[in-house]
Design a protein around this nucleic acid. Structure first.
Length: 736
RNA sequence: GCUUCUGUAGCUCAGUGGUAGAGCGCGUCCUUGGUAAGGACGAGGUCAUGGGUUCGAGUCCCAUCAGAAGCUCCA
């Protein structure tokens, strides 16, 4: 058969030849380095193009082949290596904890994990033992050996082993033949695992590895399923790569906004105030204020009208919008106005708790409490006659919820849209007024699960740079374009280049969405059209839509690679319907407007959190909490230092004077640690010449320039948000 | 919410069941200095909180609160 290589050359191979044989023909070096192949254009395995195959698997006829080698730079090679390392780790864990049942162990972008069910709790203390065991397996350089069984034979083998996860995996696998990999060559005695493969040729190819962490995971990602232990690790071909990777992790952690937030006094979160509630310290507040000022100016230019609305609203408002009680679990508890309302809520919770108990004495106790409480409400309020303590719990719950439905109360607002809709409703609108664009930095509260909270990026109270656009169906495209452009402007101004755009569509199988499917289809198509038209590379993701409409999200990664949604643009045909809002058209009839929800920053908390990491705390001049520090050489230059400070302050520059008794070296060191963009050293020479000696926070010294020039350069750099920076302020050489 | 880990000075962290520690930061003094850490002295602690075991608990056990990683969720 003919095997075509990436450079176009072809190699003749006898039937049954493998990728290894190809490598050997090319050269002994390659044969030694090869660990697998990528086959395309031939009939191999399931016939998919770009299929990775075992190095020693026979090739199935003419094909294109590129060889995978022990290169840490090659993502495919690493996936192969890490998948195999997962097997090695699984074997090590099974040896140490023989009762372990393996579930699922895939490679990841930067490592691998294995989900397993083990009666003993695996803790970081066990990692050293696991690694020792793994090192032994690797030293033995055991060959990964594949064997196939037909489905029925495989199933009875797996059922015999009594591992329900593997039986389940096998049932879900496609094809009539299931494959197993032995870590070694002795079937029956060496470790083996049901596995689709492929694998590296032998364990000896694993050059460096590390067991990283352990955590819980739900089997098949289902909260109602059994919780397994997930052990994470990573692997490389070369030891040096592992060291580089570890070093990069450490570097990344230095950018962590929680760390920098403390160091630079940007924000704090106090358990005394409440978890997930951000306290902006003066330094962080300046960054936020500058961002707000920036976008406020843009909003005025783009025809937005500022509005202000309160932090709470009536429950009925959110019953209408669909937020309550649908999102009840992720909201701070409703504030019912009457004792009856509060009691009914309490009764409802008791019923819910009873429902969650499994039948038995605990449930009997819970239903007993329900009965006592219901009787109390009935006699105290002379009410709730329709409640039947002998009815089933679901029925009881329905009765209580119906009674609750008419109770008045308030909710901390989880979204700004209902308030804005009522501003729209406050006056009649004709098609001539549209689009109406109402903008507000609106603070909303959501009771996020405790395990989700993190720094500023996932919190329970946050401020959206929110606006709602009410427009005619014809205006949707233009408005979408404008809002997307505004979001792009925000990202480019803040020098974000590495972000992705996600179109969140509805999941047709879910019941969480409101509104007419035809309008959904229309809205989704409008999103596709506008991104295509604007040349935006966007991925479509099912199930990522809001309950009222599809959306476009701008997503960035934090310092440890987790993705976060910042800006968002959402089309909404549902809420206008629910709130029955309208405008008068050219035909003098009422028509339904379309709403666009949009927030270019998303939330100020999350955005600033990500921004801290993006700049590693070294904000551009226009955002820096302290823009300039004046550092005196000695008391002899103190008077001049004051003059420099005052002159900058008069020009609106945020400047501090450091006249402490440190020598200039340590003084600069401390100011640099505060990430102040410019440090002006002033001594007797500068005082005599009315100059300042300019230094930046990275350690470069730009030299001495007249004070008046520096003031002007600073002014320009601030005004242009860093797009224009005088060449004298740009370090040509870094001293570090 | 679930699993695991963690909680000691303002920050970063040591600490073997037997007197509470370091570096940085902070304050005072000496030094009046020229670009990556000068010197001396000092203040600063209910060892997250509440129970328990023990002659004795920062250390062991339980609970609560908070934080981290992952899972699940995210209007």
């Amino acid at each position: 058969m003919k095997v075509t290589l990436p450079d176009g050359k072809t190699i003749d191979l006898p039937e049954g030849g493998s990728a290894f044989d190809v490598a050997r023909q090319i050269g002994p070096g390659l044969a030694k380095a090869a660990i697998g192949g990528i086959v395309s254009g031939g009939v191999v395995g399931d016939g998919n193009d770009g299929h990775v195959v075992d190095l020693h698997a026979p090739l199935q006829g003419d094909c294109h082949l590129s060889l995978l080698t022990t290169k840490d730079e090659d993502a495919e090679s690493l996936l192969l290596l890490r998948h195999s390392t997962a097997h090695v780790m699984a074997e090590a864990i099974c040896k140490l904890f023989p009762e372990t049942k393996l579930a699922y162990g895939p490679p990841l972008e930067d490592g691998f994990y294995y989900d397993l069910d083990c009666p003993q709790v695996i803790t970081p203390d066990d990692f050293a033992r696991i690694e020792e065991e793994m090192a032994r397996i690797i030293k033995e350089d055991r060959r990964f050996t594949r064997y196939d069984l037909d489905r029925s034979e495989a199933m009875s083998k797996l059922e015999g082993e009594g591992n329900r996860f593997k039986v389940d995996n096998a049932e879900r696998a496609e094809g009539d033949v299931l494959s197993f990999y032995i870590t070694g060559e002795n079937r029956g005695t060496d470790f083996e695992d049901l596995c689709r493969g492929p694998h590296i040729p032998s364990t000896g190819r694993i050059g460096a590895f590390k067991v990283r962490q352990v955590s819980g995971s739900y089997y098949r990602g289902d909260v109602n399923e059994q919780q397994l232990q997930r052990v994470y690790g990573t692997a490389f071909f070369k030891k040096k790569s592992l060291r580089v990777w570890e070093q990069r992790l450490i570097e990344a952690q230095k950018r962590d906004h929680r760390m920098l937030g403390k160091q630079l006094d940007l924000f704090t979160i106090s358990p005394d105030v409440g978890s997930g509630l951000v306290l902006w310290e003066p330094n962080g507040a300046i960054v936020r204020m500058m961002l707000e000022n920036f976008i406020k100016a843009e909003l005025i230019l783009r025809g937005y009208k500022p509005v202000f609305t309160p932090h709470i609203g009536r429950l009925d408002l959110y019953r209408t919008s669909g937020h309550y009680p649908y999102y009840e679990d992720s909201q701070f508890p409703a504030l019912y106005e009457t004792d009856r309302g509060r009691m009914l809520l309490c009764l409802r919770n008791l019923v819910k708790r009873a429902q969650e108990e499994h039948a038995g004495p605990r449930q009997d106790e819970a239903t007993g409490k329900v009965r006592i409480f219901a009787t109390a409400i009935q006699s105290v309020f002379d009410d709730l006659t329709e409640f039947d303590p002998s009815a089933d719990l679901e029925n009881q719950r329905q009765v209580v919820e119906d009674a609750l439905m008419h109770e008045e109360g308030y909710l901390l607002k989880p979204m700004n849209c209902p308030h804005h809709i009522h501003i729209y409703k406050a006056s009649p609108h004709s098609y001539r007024d549209l689009p109406v664009r109402l903008a507000e930095f609106g603070t909303v509260y959501r009771y996020e699960q405790s395990g989700e909270l993190g720094g500023m990026v996932r919190v329970r109270g946050f401020t959206q740079d929110d606006a709602h656009i009410f427009c005619t169906p014809d205006q949707v495209s233009d408005e979408l374009r404008n809002t997307i452009e505004l979001t792009q402007l925000v990202l480019s101004t803040l020098e974000f280049k590495d972000y992705r755009v996600r179109m969140g569509m509805r999941d047709p199988d879910s019941d969480k969405y409101t509104g007419d499917p035809k309008l959904w289809d229309r809205a989704e198509q409008q999103l596709r059209d506008i991104t295509a038209d604007m040349g935006i590379d966007a991925t479509e993701e099912k199930g990522e839509a809001a309950f009222y409409g599809p959306k476009i999200d701008f997503v960035v990664k934090d310092c440890i690679g987790r993705e976060w949604q910042l800006g968002t643009v959402q089309i909404d045909y549902s809420l206008p319907e629910r709130f029955d809002i309208s405008y008068v058209g050219t035909d003098n009839c009422d028509h339904r407007p379309v709403m666009i929800h949009r927030a270019p920053f998303g939330s100020m908390e999350r955005f600033v959190g990500i921004l801290i990491e993006h700049f590693a705390g070294a904000f551009p001049l226009w955002l820096a909490p302290i823009q300039v520090a004046v550092a005196t050489i000695s008391e002899k230059s103190l008077e001049y230092g004051r003059k420099v400070h005052d002159q900058l302050a008069e020009h609106g520059v945020r400047v501090i004077l450091d006249s402490g008794s440190d020598k200039i070296g340590p003084k600069k060191h401390r100011l640099r640690a505060q990430k102040i963009p410019y440090i002006l050293v002033v001594g007797e020479n500068e005082a005599a010449e009315e100059t300042v000696n300019i230094n930046d926070r990275d350690g470069a010294t730009m030299g001495s320039f007249p004070l008046a020039n520096f003031v002007e350069w600073c002014f320009i750099e601030i005004q242009t948000k860093g797009r224009s920076r005088h060449e004298s302020l740009t370090a040509r050489e870094r001293s570090s």
